[in-house]
Simulated scan of single mutants.
Amino acid sequence: MPIEIVELNHSLIREASLLLAGYRAEGGWDGGHAEECEAALLRLLEDAHTICLLARHQDEYAGFVTYHWGFSTTKGLPILKIQDVYTSPKHRNSGVGQALLQHTVELARERGAHRLQLETDTGNLPARSLYEKLGFEWISQKEVYMLPLSRWRMRTFGQKSDGLDYARRKGCYAVIFDEDKQQVAAVLTAAGHYFLPGGGLEDGETDHECLRREVLEETGYAIHIGSLIGEAERYFLSSRNEPLIGDGKFYTAQFAEKVQDPAEDDHSLQWIRVEEADNLLFHEHHSWAVRCARAANSDV
């Protein structure tokens, strides 16, 4: 039976997430969190530079390859960089991995690329054998260096209920400690809920633009933005029983000068003790961000 190659789209997220969960589990990750896999693939679809292809074999989705385009400065030509290749155990030795790789080779040729390149573990002998069979060469003179920019991965909180259509709400939030690092800034709403300062990302905004605007509206203060803490999401029902996913990026920050009075009358700036954040903050992923920020700095 021929192997069909299709590009990932929103209708295939569920099938692709099952493959990603298997890939993560084999790599030592906890592959059991389907929500995390779905969220990762949704973010991939939003990235204009990254493509995921799925292989369909025997009426099942059997594997995937992800790739992105680079550019050779010296040659003045594109480079196709393969990020991940995976075949589910059931479909191994059936040509799925080879079909995915051959498809990317054809894409690179069509675009006039100078080369394809990928990385693999030195002990992954089956993969290395396949790459060499397809003409890939091991470049012994090259070394791979990585600079990890964060110690986090996407965390998921809350319980996803079957049968509900969740809408994703992206936002950016600030973890701001006081001078003694014993208290963290929070915004108290008229409903009596505490949130980290920040809010929803508007069309065309960068994370920093969103964060500065939201904190200014809620507190009246300008801020100095520090480093990215991480990204996390929470499944929950709104006060109007809307199924939502709160997808937040969290940054360390400091208050600068006060610029104006808060623009939102039903929001007030409060300082809560760090050890009380878990109990007071409405969203679990907000309190998670406070814990991460505190642990990241021995002075906090």
Results as ranks from 00 to 15, higher is better:
219 T>V: 02
81 K>P: 02
62 A>S: 15
210 C>R: 05
58 Q>T: 08
58 Q>R: 12
172 C>H: 02
184 V>C: 01
191 A>E: 14
120 T>R: 00
41 L>C: 06
87 T>D: 03
169 R>T: 12
182 Q>A: 14
172 C>P: 01
295 A>M: 10
40 A>V: 12
221 Y>G: 02
87 T>I: 04
36 E>H: 05
128 R>N: 02
203 D>K: 15
270 Q>R: 14
170 K>C: 14
267 H>D: 04
203 D>Q: 15
155 R>H: 10
64 F>T: 04
98 Q>V: 09
274 V>F: 12
79 I>M: 05
243 P>V: 01
51 I>V: 15
9 N>A: 06
40 A>Y: 14
75 K>F: 12
8 L>N: 04
234 R>K: 14
69 W>T: 03
109 R>L: 08
56 R>T: 02
20 L>T: 09
228 L>Y: 10
45 L>S: 03
14 R>Y: 08
26 E>G: 03
200 G>F: 07
162 D>I: 10
230 G>Q: 00
193 H>P: 00
182 Q>E: 15
147 L>F: 10
73 T>K: 05
147 L>H: 11
149 L>C: 13
13 I>S: 07
77 L>K: 15
268 S>F: 08
10 H>S: 15
220 G>W: 06
162 D>A: 15
219 T>Q: 03
83 Q>E: 13
132 E>V: 02
66 T>N: 05
146 M>T: 13
109 R>P: 11
84 D>H: 00
96 V>F: 02
158 G>V: 04
290 V>Q: 04
93 N>W: 07
220 G>K: 00
271 W>M: 13
52 C>Y: 06
213 R>T: 01
275 E>N: 14
45 L>T: 01
50 T>H: 11
256 A>D: 12
78 P>Q: 10
298 S>V: 11
44 L>Y: 01
37 C>V: 07
200 G>C: 08
269 L>E: 01
20 L>F: 02
105 V>C: 11
116 L>H: 01
175 V>R: 02
273 R>S: 13
125 L>Q: 04
272 I>F: 06
38 E>H: 06
166 Y>L: 09
78 P>K: 13
197 P>K: 08
169 R>V: 12
65 V>L: 07
20 L>R: 03
269 L>D: 01
224 H>T: 14
270 Q>P: 08
104 T>V: 07
215 V>C: 06
